[in-house]
């Protein structure tokens, strides 16, 4: 399978980090950066990545289904809203933000809007405990999120479309 040039470059950069006999090390990064660049992980990509790092496709699948940020076979939306409800956020309003986002977006856990734009996930601790409640939209952190701020963030996503 042909990869977009930027991703191809990222592939060489990542594979170059590891000793040649251990290029399997690149597996998780390759999958995550591919997902970011392509929006989804396809069976073709699985085969391609297997070939690049010299493993069986089933070994890619083993890894793919293990890590919670890798979404396969169902991709998440262009904007992936991740709301933490783990203990620090639980104490400070995380679960309420979660309920609110579900209602506002009409989505549940790991559901994607019909247009593929927004998806929602209740996530485990994202490492923002002292600035809870926190959410991540794609890789962007938002701290001390209030219901109003959540609404604003979600409304912005709709406008970004």
């Amino acid at each position: 399978m042909t990869l977009p040039p930027e991703l191809e470059q990222k592939f060489s950069e990542i594979i170059g980090k590891y000793p040649p006999q251990h290029k399997r090390s690149a597996l998780v990064p390759l999958l995550l950066y591919s997902q970011d660049a392509l929006g989804k992980i396809t069976p073709e990509l699985v085969t391609e990545v297997a070939r690049r790092v010299g493993v069986f496709p089933v070994q890619v699948e083993e890894v793919l289904t293990y890590y919670s940020m890798l979404h396969f076979p169902k991709p998440m939306g262009k904007y992936h809203v991740q709301i933490c409800t783990n203990v620090s956020c639980q104490l400070t309003g995380g679960p309420e933000l979660w309920e609110r986002a579900c209602k506002k977006l009409g989505l549940g856990h790991k559901e994607v809007s019909a247009d593929g734009l927004i998806s929602l996930e209740e996530v485990e601790c994202i490492g923002a405990c002292s600035w809870a409640p926190a959410i991540q939209i794609n890789y962007d952190f938002h701290h001390f999120v209030t219901p109003e701020k959540l609404d604003e963030l979600l409304d912005n996503l709709r406008q970004l479309q």
């Binding site: 980090k17 590891y18 998780v28 990064p29 950066y33 890590y67 919670s68």
Partner: peptide, 9 residues
């Protein structure tokens, strides 16, 4: 080198 994880405590 940096190496990224992908979500696993």
């Amino acid at each position: 080198f940096t190496h990224t994880g992908a979500g696993a405590y």
